[in-house]
Design a protein around this nucleic acid. Sequence first.
DNA 1: CAAGAATTTGAGAGCGCTCTCAATATCTAT
DNA 2: ATAGATATTGAGAGCGCTCTCAAATTCTTG
Lengths: 339, 339
Amino acid sequence: MKRLTLEEIGQIAGVSRSTVSRVINGHPNIRPAVRQRVEDVIRQTGYQPNSAARSLASSQSRVFGLVMPSLMQSAFADPYYPLVIQAISHACNQHDYTPALFLFQTLEEEEKTSQRIVASGMIDGLVVTADTIESTFVSKIQEYEIPFVQIGRPLQASAADISYVDVDNEAGSYLAASHLIQLGYRRIGQLATAHNVAGAHRDAGFRQALTDRGLPIDESLIEVSDFSEAGGYDAMRALLERQPEAVFAHSDAIALGAIRAIRDRGLKVPKDIAVVGFDDMPLAASADPPLTTVRQPIYRTGTLAVETLIDIVRTSPAPARHIVLPVELVIRASSGAVS
Amino acid sequence: MKRLTLEEIGQIAGVSRSTVSRVINGHPNIRPAVRQRVEDVIRQTGYQPNSAARSLASSQSRVFGLVMPSLMQSAFADPYYPLVIQAISHACNQHDYTPALFLFQTLEEEEKTSQRIVASGMIDGLVVTADTIESTFVSKIQEYEIPFVQIGRPLQASAADISYVDVDNEAGSYLAASHLIQLGYRRIGQLATAHNVAGAHRDAGFRQALTDRGLPIDESLIEVSDFSEAGGYDAMRALLERQPEAVFAHSDAIALGAIRAIRDRGLKVPKDIAVVGFDDMPLAASADPPLTTVRQPIYRTGTLAVETLIDIVRTSPAPARHIVLPVELVIRASSGAVS
DNA sequence: CAAGAATTTGAGAGCGCTCTCAATATCTAT
DNA sequence: ATAGATATTGAGAGCGCTCTCAAATTCTTG
């Protein structure tokens, strides 16, 4: 099918290229009759402006990039990223942006692609998930002055002029720990994740809760895990030696691994050891026992990231936006509060 | 940071715009000394050609679209799609293509965005996952003559001129069913999925295996489920009434749900009922008991889809490519073959 | 109904690249 | 050294759009 141009649409409608352009871009000062006529032609022909020409002339592409640097294989097993991607995709569709996806499995891959992303003008803005330690990527974006928002808070001090959308990890783990304390548990372990900002915040909230309730912090009750089920299993096996009465895991996947480890040892959840997770992923509700967990609004995070980015692009230069979304504790059987 | 143009690079290197263009595009017939000089300037300046201008002049964007039509919320919980996305992203990075993501949660969303995708020239080719019944999308792509490959075989007759990459679902379920039969099980149930091509093929392979081994096909031992764990649980509960000795599930998630249902009924896997899944997702190996399942090369599917698409774009017009990848049976404890 | 103001439209340049074609530089063989 | 072949380079048009500026049209108002 032959693709039409503005000129040709104009010809059919009996107006100039300029007028058609005005109609498409919603400019004022067009006689209603003319606008109608042009719109009819556009609809009938299914005309869509050539996006390359548009970008070139207007120097904006209406493409957003979604960047996930140094993403390990495993991270994607977690339903977190898929959900974020889905949210971002949907929000982009909604606002007539096209989301381009940049997943980097190695630094080498990141290196190779990132220059093209920032310097080719192909992208109007970026959503960056930067949960791990800083890559050089953010500084590169800043150098080229590309608008961007991070999902997850940046750790470093330069955070003030970086826009981000994050969930209140600290409050979440505070809730989780407080819940366990209120249920009477004293020896509360933590299956923590390291090297990521969210993990640091979750750890902080956990400690704060213990401290606020006058409990000592026993470092030997804290085991480090990655975000996987298998990691949780291993970490919990180690932790079992220390005989905790309850355990707070930094993710539901970890919690599920922990439950498996506890059961393998012949113990019952929550009777012998209570478990609380973080995420409220779909499997949490149908787990055995159903998992008490901290629900974070993952989808909303993605949506807000895009909307914030649009706002930044529109009003640039703009002050940085900082959004922290609330979380909630979902109480199910695994913590022993309900049967 | 000010973005440079070809002209300016040429100025610095003391050559014309045309020559720089030639260097960038790897044309022959450039004096080595000149090429060297130009390449140095490009490297030092970090110059990247403006992609809009490039697209406009060459009428190709080096962008591939990844389209997932009528995707329900739940489908994304499955690690299948994330893995495909990851593979496609990686393959695109490898070949200097940019992957644009189009997930459609509703037909309305699909309708709104699809015209832009096909008619704006923003995209050189599409990878379409069309596991469900045909949307109007494929015919639209064909109308606009955009190269595309499907992941998963098209069901309808027009398949011959559609390129696709698929796994051998039929052989997979044939393997699974044969395995169970060989182990001596006779009343073998199936937790099947409906309304998707892969499901149809898996069902066919299952039936073929029974027939080939002289077993009757008992329709009452076939329950329909969606692809979720919860769906598997419900379907298995129903199936339990019919007292199967073994059950083949169309996905690992379904199998996991089935195991939970069996256990809730006070029965043991595999002692009372053997279970085989499909996918070999990461959780399959660490499930309790470890899941016998059909491993399909999901990642490879995505990679091949991109490579095939590149091949098609390059040699267009080209005959349709049909690729069917082999699967393998991974035997673990849940089928009762090993402890 | 004319003259000025306001609205609506069109012409033209230009965004940064590719690609053709012609011009120039270099090489080969006599 | 020189004609002819060949390799290398540059000039210029054009891709389809946006956006400015001026022209044409319509609307006011005395």
